[in-house]
Design a protein around this nucleic acid. Structure first.
Length: 555
RNA sequence: UGCCCGAUAGUAUAAAGGUAGUACGACGGUUUUUGGUACCGUUUGUCUAGGUUCGAAUCCUGGUCGGGCAACCA
C-alpha cells in the first residue's frame, strides 16, 4: 500500500476525467467477448484491466456478449466465458448481450435513414469492395447511393421482413467515400443472414455489423470508458460518428496493446484450429493458453491476476516472455501448495541395516506457510523407491546425491550412506544398497553428520500409483504466428509426455481437483479431471526452478 | 506510393524539461533437511539526424524501423 505505483495511461485518463467531473465522476467499463470461442490469457489481460479499473475507481463493469454474428456464436461459449470470468474472481454488474438491443439498433438505423445518412445498397460484396477504392485512391459511389429516404425506408423494412436473400442487400452509412480512413468510406451497418441466433432464434434475418452495434451498446449502457485493442483505432472515428449522428450517450473508446506471449499463439481462430484438427485435446487441454486450459493445468486465478498486473498496459506492441507467467505461478504455489513426495522414475533402494517393519514419520505440509500448515504421516521402511537420477555409479564432484560412498539425507527421515548397488545383465542399475544412521532421524538428529543433499522417496509397500502428464511448450518457435498459416508445423512434438505409473506417498490418494501440490524437488502438480476412483492422474503445472539441471546442461 | 498508431536493457514497464528506475530473465554469491524458497550482488537501455533549452527519453522537424487499415468477422 505504501509503495507508490505509477499510473498506466488509462488510469491517467480516468483520474483526469474524475478530476474534471466528466460523467459525474462515474466509471463504468465493460468486457465484451464474442461467444465464438473460449477465453485465453489475452482476454484475462482485458478482464483484469476492465474489472480492475472499475474496482480501483469505485465503478462498475458489465459483461456484454458481442453476439451480432449468429453463424459463429454458440451458447456453449457463453457458458464457458461466464465460468472463466467468475473463476478469475470478478463479478459483473449486468449480464448483457448486444442482441438485447436489436430492436433499438434497428430504430437507430431507421433514424439515420431518415436523416439521409444511410442507404440500402444492392451491390454485391465484390462491387462494394471495388467501390471502396484503395488506401491511395478514393472510392466511387454506389449506383444506389442516392435512393430516396422513402425508398430506403421501405427497402430496409423489407430486408427485416425477410423479403431478400442473404447478401442481396445491405444497409450502408453515407459518410465519405474519399476519406483517408477506409472505415469511413460508407461502411456496412446491416447485412442479411437467414440464420438462427443463439438468443433471438429466428426473430431476425438482418444483423448489425460490429461497428453499428458496439458503440451504440456502449451508449445504451452508458459505458464511460470503452476499452479495446489497438486494431480498433481506425474504427474510433466511426464509433464517434454514429454516436454523434444518433445523439446518444457519448461513450469514449480507448485502445491498448493486446497481449502476445512467447511460444504461444493467441488468436481464437488459430486456437480453434488446434482444437478442431486434433493437435490438442479440446479447448481446456492443459497446453492451451486458454483460461480453462491453464486452470486444468493447475494455474491459480491469483497467479493469472498477478501476471496481468505485472505485464502492464501500454500502446506499444509487446511479446511477454512465458517465463514471467511461470514465475507468477511458482510464486503463488510456493506459498499455497502442500508438499508431498512422489517418485516419477523409480529405482529400488534397500536400507540394509534397517529392521523389518515400518515406522511413521512426519512431514510438514508447507514450510512457507505461516504457522507451519500442519503435517502429515509418512510411512517409512527398509525398502524405498527413489528417483533414478538421484544415483550415479560414477558421480562428478558437485553431485550431492547418491553414489558409492556418498551420503544424503532422506527427506523427513534419516541420513544414509551408499554402500553398494546391483546391476542386471544388461548393465542397468536395479538396486541401490545403503546403510542408515539411526541417530540422524529428522528433527532429532544427534549424529553430527552434515550432508549436502536431501532426496525424496516413497516406501515401496505403502506406495500408491498414479499417472502423470508432463507438459512442455506447445510450440518450438518463440513466435509461431510469424509462420502464418503454417504455424502448426512448429508444434512441439514433445509437448505432452505421459508417465503411466509413478509412485506417490499414501497421503496423496486423498488429492482433490483444484488443489496445487508440490512434489518435492519435482515441481507443482494438480489432479486432472480424467482421474477416477481407481486411477489418479496428475498434471504437472510447472517444474521447480532447477539450477542443477542448468549446471548439467552447461557440462 | 494514402491515413493511423508506436519506438527506453534480452522481455516488459516507469521517469509529466532536472540523478534513466523497477520486475522477469541471465550471471555470481549467502542461507537452506527441497540443487526449491528467502536474501544479496553483477550485467545490459533512451531508433537516428538536426533544432529549441542552462538542461531533452520527454518539446519541435526530417528520416529509419515495427504494427494496423481496403471482411456482408469482431
Amino acid at each position: 500500500m505504501s509503495e507508490e505505483r505509477s499510473l498506466n495511461f488509462l488510469e491517467e485518463i480516468i483520474e483526469d476525467d474524475i478530476k474534471n467531473g466528466r460523467n459525474d465522476g462515474r466509471v463504468h467499463t465493460r468486457f465484451p467477448p464474442e461467444p465464438n470461442g473460449y477465453l485465453h490469457i489475452g482476454h484475462a489481460k482485458s478482464i483484469c484491466l476492465n474489472f480492475g479499473l472499475a474496482l480501483k475507481y469505485n465503478g462498475k463493469t458489465n459483461l456484454r456478449f458481442d453476439d451480432t454474428n449468429p453463424e459463429t456464436e454458440e451458447t456453449e461459449y457463453v457458458e464457458s466465458i461466464k465460468e472463466d470470468v467468475k473463476w478469475l474472481g470478478f463479478n459483473w454488474e449486468n449480464e448483457l448481450y448486444a442482441s438485447n438491443y436489436f430492436d433499438e439498433l434497428y430504430a437507430f438505423a431507421v433514424k439515420l435513414i431518415e436523416k439521409g445518412l444511410a442507404y440500402v445498397d444492392d451491390s454485391s460484396p465484390d462491387e462494394i469492395a471495388a467501390q471502396k477504392g484503395s488506401p491511395t485512391e478514393p472510392g466511387t459511389p454506389s449506383p444506389y447511393r442516392d435512393r430516396t429516404i422513402e425508398e430506403n425506408l421501405r427497402l430496409f423494412s423489407e430486408m427485416k421482413d425477410g423479403k431478400y436473400l442473404d447478401g442481396e442487400k445491405v444497409l450502408r452509412a453515407k459518410i465519405d467515400l474519399s476519406s483517408p480512413n477506409m472505415h469511413l468510406r460508407d461502411p456496412l451497418m446491416y447485412r442479411i443472414r437467414h440464420a438462427k441466433h443463439h438468443r433471438t432464434g429466428d426473430k431476425w434475418c438482418i444483423y448489425p455489423m460490429y461497428d453499428f452495434a458496439h458503440g451504440q451498446s456502449d451508449a445504451i449502457e452508458k459505458i464511460t470508458h470503452s476499452i479495446c485493442t489497438l486494431e480498433f483505432i481506425p474504427h474510433r472515428p466511426l464509433y464517434e460518428w454514429f454516436i454523434d449522428k444518433l445523439d446518444i450517450f457519448p461513450s469514449r473508446q480507448y485502445e491498448f496493446a493486446r497481449l502476445n506471449m512467447t511460444y504461444t499463439v493467441m488468436s481464437k481462430r488459430k486456437l480453434l484450429q488446434l482444437v478442431n484438427e486434433g493437435f490438442v485435446n479440446g479447448w481446456d487441454d492443459p497446453r492451451m493458453p486458454t483460461i480453462s486450459g491453464l486452470r486444468r493445468r493447475g494455474f491459480t486465478a491469483a497467479s493469472i491476476r498477478d501476471f496481468c498486473d505485472r505485464i502492464g498496459v501500454a500502446k506499444r506492441e509487446n511479446s511477454i516472455d512465458v517465463s514471467l507467467l511461470e514465475f507468477c505461478i511458482r510464486e503463488d504455489l510456493n506459498k499455497k501448495a502442500w508438499r508431498r513426495m512422489a517418485v516419477l522414475d523409480p529405482i529400488k533402494l534397500v536400507i540394509t541395516n534397517y529392521p523389518e517393519g515400518e515406522e511413521i514419520l512426519h512431514g510438514e505440509n508447507n514450510p512457507e506457510e505461516e504457522g507451519g500448515g500442519g503435517s502429515r504421516d509418512i510411512p517409512f521402511g527398509r525398502e524405498l523407491w527413489i528417483e533414478r537420477e538421484d544415483f550415479m555409479e560414477n558421480a562428478p564432484k558437485k553431485f550431492f546425491r547418491l553414489a558409492p560412498g556418498l551420503m544424503v539425507r532422506l527427506k523427513h527421515a534419516y541420513i544414509i550412506k551408499c554402500d553398494d548397488f546391483v546391476k542386471d545383465e544388461s548393465g542397468n542399475i536395479t538396486e541401490v544398497h545403503c546403510s542408515y544412521f539411526p541417530e540422524s532421524k529428522s528433527g532429532q538428529d544427534t549424529s553430527g553428520i552434515h550432508v549436502k543433499g536431501t532426496i525424496h522417496w516413497v516406501s515401496i509397500p505403502h506406495a500408491v500409483t498414479a499417472e502423470v502428464r508432463i507438459y512442455d511448450r506447445l510450440f518450438r518457435s518463440e513466435d509461431p504466428a510469424a509462420n502464418g498459416e503454417d504455424f502448426k508445423e512448429l508444434i512441439n512434438p514433445e509437448s505432452l509426455q505421459t508417465i503411466p505409473q509413478i509412485y506417490i506417498e499414501p497421503d496423496l490418494a486423498k488429492a482433490e481437483q483444484g488443489v496445487g501440490y508440490q512434489f518435492i524437488r519435482k515441481g507443482y502438480f494438480t489432479l486432472d479431471k480424467d482421474s477416477s476412483a481407481g486411477k489418479l492422474v496428475f498434471n504437472r503445472t510447472v517444474s521447480l526452478k532447477d539450477t542443477w539441471a542448468k549446471e548439467v546442461k552447461k557440462g
